[in-house]
Structure formats: structure tokens, C-alpha cells
Design a binder for these strands. Structure first.
Lengths: 105, 105
DNA sequence: GTTATCTGCAACTAGATGATTGCAGACCAA
DNA sequence: TTGGTCTGCAATCATCTAGTTGCAGATAAC
């Protein structure tokens, strides 16, 4: 995962409806039509959200007969979390260094 | 940090310009005007982005004389990373369970 | 073969948002 | 006190996007 792919992941995660979809998929794979039955948006809206999530590598389509079910990919989340933690730790170290300097005065 | 504050953090991180700002701030605190000298956007655009980042708890304003410098808060990133990893691990476990079932057939 | 359902594409609308310019107030310096 | 700079507010603009409706094609079921 490169830095260019990181921003789309966050953009995908920065929407309440998409989180609802991810949470619903977390309980089991489902098609856009099935999700539309559980969420207060139309199937087409969900289809667009699924396309965004798929583009970010967060879900994966699986053909089951005539329908297309989607599966959530936890590995992408874990990978993103790891990179986020690294960056946060760096910035945290800088802050700690600043505080140490301030206390040393 | 609750689930409601999680989505705004991702929304804040889902923008290239805001990442540029965060990276610039990672090298040292700076004011909106100072950042405008380094980035290809106007000061006002940066000010709006800083407001978004502050709303997400990712930066913190520090008054220095007549100017307002901003400091990046790595702790928020680390906290977000931890929660993301937890969620990703859960979904990963579900996937692993599914795979195990499939192999057992 | 007909029917029902599920998918995908296209057009459209309304609201959010990234970015701009312009102006007015605050504050430090010369 | 006057000039320069930094901040903040408001209006405006263009684009993006979340959502909708409508329709056409594919495919499983009966």
C-alpha cells in the first residue's frame, strides 16, 4: 500500500452510510439489494458506495449465482491502521522532544 | 473517542491538501500564513482546512504573539489507528472462520 | 417460455465542499 | 501614528458527491 492509496481509503471511511454498509457486511456477506432492505437508502446509492469501498480495497465482490455479494476485507483496515500508527508515533515523538526541550529550559 | 468522532477524523484525513498541511506541520508548528507560502493554495483555504483538522482533534492552535500557530497531535492518529486495527481484526477473524469452514467441507 | 428478480447504466437534483477574492479589525514595529 | 502584516468574516463560484428515479439487459425460478 502506497501513500496514494491511503487517502482514498480515508475518504471511503469518512462517510456514515458507508460505515453502515461495512458494519452490515461485517455480520455476513450481502448483495446491494439485500443491503437496501436493511438500510434507509436505495439499492443504487448502495451500489455506488460499494464501488467506492471496492476502489479503496475495503470490500470484494463475490458472484453467487445471479447476484453479486460483497465481502469486507479486514486486512486493508489493519494495514491502514499500522501505517496510521507509525505516522502518529512519529509526530508524537516530535511533540515529546519539544516538551523535553521546554522542560529543560 | 467514540464512534461518532471517528468518522469526522477519517473525513478530515480523506483530502490530499489536508495531508500536505499535516505533513508540513509534522516538520514544525506553523501558522496559516506560513503554510500558504509553502503550499499552492491561499491562506483562507488553509485556514478552512485547519478548522476541519482542529474539529477532528488532529491539530491544536497555539497563539504566539499576534499569530496563531498550529501543532499536529499524533495522539489522535494513534488512537484512531488502534480502533481501526481492532475493527479490522474482528472482520479478519470472521473471514478466517469462513475459510476454515470452506476447507472443512 | 414467461415471469420475477437482480444487476448495471444514464440522467438528474440538491446539498456539501474546496477554493477564490475582497474587506475589516487587531497587533507589532519603525 | 503610520505602515505592514497577520487574522477572521462574508460572499461567491465551480466542482464533487450522495441520493433519487427510470429503464434495459441478464438470469434464475416456475
Amino acid at each position: 500500500m502506497t501513500a496514494e492509496t491511503l487517502v482514498p481509503v480515508f475518504a471511503a471511511l469518512g462517510d456514515e452510510t458507508r460505515w453502515s454498509i461495512l458494519v452490515a457486511l461485517g455480520e455476513g456477506d450481502a448483495s446491494a439489494s439485500a443491503l437496501a432492505g436493511r438500510l434507509p437508502v436505495t439499492r443504487q446509492a448502495i451500489a455506488k458506495h460499494l464501488a467506492v469501498l471496492q476502489g479503496a480495497g475495503l470490500v470484494e465482490p463475490v458472484r453467487v449465482g445471479r447476484e453479486v455479494q460483497y465481502r469486507v476485507l479486514g486486512s486493508q483496515l489493519s494495514e491502514t491502521a499500522r501505517r496510521l500508527d507509525t505516522i502518529g508515533a512519529e509526530w508524537g515523538r516530535r511533540l515529546a522532544a519539544i516538551k523535553e526541550l521546554a522542560e529543560g529550559l
